[in-house]
Amino acid sequence: MNMPLQRILYVEDDPSIQTVVKLALELVGGYQVEVCDSGRAAMAALQRFRPQLALLDVMMPGMDGPTTLQHLREQFGFERLPAIFMTAKVQPAEVAVLKSQGALGVIAKPFDPMTLGGELERLWSGQSQ
C-alpha cells in the first residue's frame, strides 16, 4: 500500500480518551480522524468516511472491538481493512488473540500521546512490507 496513512476510523466509548486520541492524532500526527463512540456508529460512518485504518478500543459496551472489526470487514470494500487495537489488557495471551484476528498490532493503554502517531505509522508501514 503506497498511499500514506491519512484517514483513521477511531472507535472508543470513553469520551476523555476520545478527546486525547483525537488531539494526539490530528494535532501531533496530522491525521484525519473520524471518532465513533460505538461499533454501530463506526459501521454507520464507514462508507461515508472510507478509512484507511481502524483504531479500535477492545472493551466497549454493546459491541466490543474485535466484533466491531468483524462487522466492518463484512462491508463491501473493507474486507481487508487494516486495524489496530488499543487495550488496557496487554497480557501476551490477550495480545496474541487480538493479533490472530488480523490486527496489525496492539497499543497498550495508557499510551504516550506524543508518540502515538509514530507508533501507528510504524505498524502501518510494517503492514506494507
Binding site: 470513553d14 476523555s16 480518551i17 478527546t19 486525547v20 486520541v21 488531539l23 494526539a24 494535532l27 501531533v28 488496557a88 493503554k109 495508557p110 499510551f111 504516550d112 500521546p113 506524543m114
Partner: peptide, 10 residues
C-alpha cells in the same frame, strides 16, 4: 489514567 496521561502528555 490513559486520559490523564494522554492529556498531560499533550
Amino acid at each position: 489514567l490513559t486520559s490523564i496521561r494522554g492529556s498531560l502528555g499533550l
